[in-house]
Amino acid sequence: MSMRHGFVSLIVATLAAAPAVAHPHVWVAVRSEVLFTDDGKIKGVRHAWTFDDMYSAFALQGLGKDGKPPSREELAPLAKTNAESLAEFDYFTFAKYQNAKTAFGPPEDVWLEADDKKIVTMHFTLPLEKPLPAQKPFSFQIYDPTYFVAFDLEKQNAVTLTKAPAGCSTSVVEPKPLLAIDTQKLSEAFFANMSPGADFGMKLAARIVVACP
């Protein structure tokens, strides 16, 4: 079951009674670490994505025993499938270096966990194709262009730095608020007719900026 297929099945199973519901359908709370090499270059981003209770319940169907959440080992096959399927969507993570797009390699250290309340969190690391000098502007956004999935940064400690050189910092550039007319557009019909490459989700995504002296 891929992540996106899981989302779609979830909607069919749980939202059939509300056909007029607008986007988004799945909500994800995000924590991210910007990773550095020992010599101070930016080498990648490590994510922890915590899903809403409805998607978590769908993902955990048939897993776990005696009312307990499933173990990391039980969730390993789903974690692997999710990581493979997310490649098609660039892992919903879009980075820029010196204002030009930069690419990530395949994900590493992918695993899922479910807490005592059976809320699912996906952990994975996206390495840059090559480490980049930290003294140049680096930034990234996490979003679904179609806004089927809403990614929101956690309220506290959403972005941290690991092994960063002294003086490095992060800042979050919040998106501009939607106009009332844009809010009215968030209907199923609007998204069904949206042209490819419209990147509506980008308008609603915060940008994380890393700055080093």
Rank of each mutant, 00 (worst) to 15 (best):
L178D: 05
D109W: 03
S171N: 09
D116C: 01
P69T: 10
K43T: 15
S139D: 08
A206H: 10
H123Y: 14
F58A: 09
M54E: 14
A164V: 05
F138Q: 07
K96A: 13
D90N: 12
N193Y: 01
T93L: 01
I42E: 07
H23I: 13
C212Q: 08
A83E: 04
V30W: 05
I119N: 00
D90G: 06
A13Q: 10
C168P: 09
A198G: 02
A20L: 14
W111V: 07
T160C: 06
V12F: 07
M1W: 12
V26D: 14
L112A: 13
A83F: 00
W49H: 12
P133K: 03
T14R: 09
G67K: 09
Q141L: 00
R207G: 09
F94H: 13
E33P: 03
D182I: 01
S139M: 05
P133T: 03
F7S: 15
I208L: 08
K80G: 10
P196T: 05
K130S: 02
G62C: 04
L186Q: 04
L10H: 03
Y97S: 05
A198N: 09
N193T: 14
D115L: 00
Q184H: 10
K136R: 12
V209M: 12
A189Y: 07
A198P: 00
P131S: 07
F140N: 03
P127Y: 07
L204W: 05
V173N: 14
V8H: 13
A57F: 11
I11L: 09
G6H: 00
S71G: 08
F124C: 06
F104H: 10
M3K: 10
L132D: 08
T146M: 10
T125E: 08
F190L: 00
A87C: 06
A16T: 11
P19V: 07
V45C: 03
P213Y: 04
F191N: 04
L179N: 11
K117D: 13
T50I: 03
M194P: 02
V110M: 09
T102A: 11
V209T: 11
A166S: 14
V21L: 13
L179G: 15
I142D: 03
V120G: 06
K65F: 06
K130D: 03
D53L: 11
F36W: 05
S32W: 01
L153D: 14
A16H: 06
P175K: 02
W27S: 10
T183Y: 11
L86A: 01
G64W: 01
A48D: 15
L186D: 04
L112M: 13
I181D: 15
K185L: 08
C168G: 04
F190W: 03
A95W: 13
L161A: 05
G167E: 01
L126H: 11
K163Y: 04
P106F: 06
V26Y: 10
L153S: 10
I42D: 08
D39H: 12
T81L: 09
F140G: 07
D152H: 13
V159I: 12
A22Q: 08
K136I: 04
N157C: 06
K41R: 14
F94Y: 15
R4K: 08
M54R: 12
V26Q: 14
T14W: 01
Y147T: 06
A103E: 14
A211P: 09
D66H: 10
L86I: 02
G40W: 05
